[in-house]
């Protein structure tokens, strides 16, 4: 792929999002679009560690909620502006990634996964007991007033999330095509051989965990203004853990485009489905599709398309 193309696509997506806010009047579409872009960020973030490096993070909900609650504290304490919340949310979640990674990444990969499994529940317990952010009842956040050129603050949030999706995708693209990504791929293929070929495996794994955690926190930071009632059950929802992992697995884990394809397909389907079926049935379908893909199409949709294209050429 040519160097300029991703940048061109990025600018195109942002312009399209901006134009959309001028043309589309239906408020529901902004909420739906926000969720889809949010999942693009989460799936891309998960894939930087899970897909490129082969280390499974089950704790996306924990990283996401940490970003959301960091933003909540900043709003309650300082009325900090949104960009500050996003940067802070990303930093705090990055530090969490560094901590968990440092304790478990020197061991076999499964220990990292097991630690992340328990992580979200423990963070949730802390938040439940923290009165400042409303404990289990949660806390109400007042959305700021709209400012031009946006007709409402939700439109602005939609645009911000679109921008974050573009930034995360570009970060993934850069990692994939740089020496970092090649080192991560070597780790995924054979960690022992990678270390013996000069790849600083621990440092690269930590880097991937930090970047991945950071983007999960970033995705969570605008959450308070989006929902306006921040409470633990929805902030730590299992939806995030399942979707952030299912989307790359369904889309394809080895390229930056896979998680995006998976995120757009799966979250659009869920947005449509919640209107017609219960959210539990919705989740059940996600689970079954996930297992089906893992068993039958391990390369994901991108892999299937590549194989079809390859067959045609051959």
């Amino acid at each position: 792929m040519k160097k300029g193309l991703p940048l061109l696509i990025a600018v195109g997506v942002l312009l399209a999002a901006l134009v959309a806010t001028r043309l589309v009047g239906n408020r529901y579409l902004y909420f739906a679009g926000y969720v889809i872009f949010q999942y693009v960020v989460l799936a891309t973030a998960w894939n930087i560690l899970g897909g490129y490096t082969g280390y499974v993070n089950f704790g996306t909900a924990g990283f996401f909620a940490l970003g959301a609650y960091t933003a909540t504290v900043l709003i309650l304490a300082f009325k900090a502006p949104l960009p500050v919340q996003i940067v802070a949310g990303g930093l705090v979640s990055a530090v969490l990634g560094l901590g968990i990674g440092y304790l478990t990444l020197r061991l076999r990969g499964v220990f990292f996964s097991i630690a992340t499994l328990a992580l979200a529940l423990v963070l949730q317990t802390f938040v439940m007991n923290w009165e400042y952010v409303g404990g289990a009842k949660g806390v109400s956040i007042i959305r700021p007033a709209a400012f031009p050129p946006f007709a409402s603050y939700v439109e602005f949030l939609f645009f911000v999330m679109a921008a974050l999706a573009v930034v995360s995708a570009m970060a993934a693209w850069w990692i994939e095509n740089s020496w970092v990504g090649r080192g991560l791929a070597a780790i995924r293929d054979n960690e022992e051989a990678a270390e013996c070929m000069g790849v600083p495996t621990l440092r690269l794994k930590l880097l991937a965990t930090v970047v991945s955690g950071c983007f999960m926190g970033v995705a969570g930071a605008p959450f308070p203004y989006y929902v306006t009632l921040v409470e633990p059950v929805s902030a730590f929802s299992l939806d995030y853990a399942v979707n952030s992992l299912a989307m790359p697995m369904i889309g394809g884990t080895t390229t930056w485009i896979g998680p995006i394809v998976g995120a757009i397909l799966l979250s659009t389907a869920q947005q449509v489905a919640t209107v017609t079926i219960s959210s539990e049935l919705n989740l059940l379908i996600v689970g079954i599709v996930l297992v089906a893909f893992v068993l039958l199409a391990p390369q994901g949709i991108v892999g299937l398309v590549q194989r079809l294209a390859g067959r045609r050429r051959a």
């Binding site: 899970g50 082969g54 399942v242 992992l245 884990t253 059940l284 689970g287 079954i288």
Partner: peptide, 23 residues
């Protein structure tokens, strides 16, 4: 391929059983 996909497989099972019980 047990490390990545095997883990995700069990996670999927966990999820399916839990949601099925919920339903």
């Amino acid at each position: 391929e047990e490390s990545l996909r095997g883990l995700v497989f069990f996670f999927g099972l966990l999820f399916i059983i839990e949601v099925a019980l919920l339903l």
